[in-house]
């Protein structure tokens, strides 16, 4: 099987290497340790960051409920997707999981299919409760059961 169009393959000058100098000696563990220490310090701020993200998700949900449409739906997807990416970093893996389920629902559901506000609310409320109760590990049975249930409902809606 051959691709019909001609291609040009070339190697641009490695300006980055020239700029940073030095030579590859494996990962710079001193820099990694400094960065990990800096992240540890930031963790004190994670609680308020997570709170901001929960507020943003609730605001996006309210905007969608008030005026369902592609713009508010896209805003809700962005808020859920951001939360999915960030919650794990902020030590809330179960929030990441529920936000991931909500993202999947919004993203995979055809734009022409109505997005169930009830199912959206179930996700947003679950995130709110997990955050309120500061569930920061994966062993909380109630939160785990809730996540499983939400994922199952999304799979059902998406027919997967």
């Amino acid at each position: 099987m051959s691709r019909q169009q001609p291609i040009e393959l070339f190697m641009p000058p490695n300006m980055l290497k020239a700029k940073v100098g030095g030579s590859f000696v494996g990962l710079d563990m001193a820099a990694i340790n400094r960065a990990e220490a800096a992240m540890e310090e930031l963790k004190n701020e994670f609680a308020s960051w997570a709170q901001d993200d929960v507020r943003r998700l609730v605001a996006a949900r309210d905007a969608f409920a008030a005026e369902p449409g592609s713009a508010t739906r896209a805003g809700l997807l962005r808020a859920a997707h951001d939360m999915k990416g960030q919650a794990a970093t902020f030590n809330y893996p179960l929030i990441a999981r529920v936000a991931g389920s909500l993202s999947r629902l919004i993203h995979d559901l055809p734009e022409t299919t109505e997005l169930s506000l009830g199912l959206v609310d179930a996700h947003v409320n679950a995130i709110h409760v997990i955050y309120r109760d500061k569930v920061m590990d994966m062993s909380n049975k109630v939160a785990l059961a809730l996540s499983n249930e939400l994922e199952a409902r999304v799979a059902e809606v998406l027919g997967s």
Binding site: M1, S2, R3, P6, E8, L9, F10, M11, P13
Partner: peptide, 14 residues
């Protein structure tokens, strides 16, 4: 894997 490209030009820019 399969070689999908039919024409390959490598230009050394350095």
């Amino acid at each position: 894997g399969p070689e999908r490209r039919t024409e390959k030009t490598i230009l050394a820019a350095e």
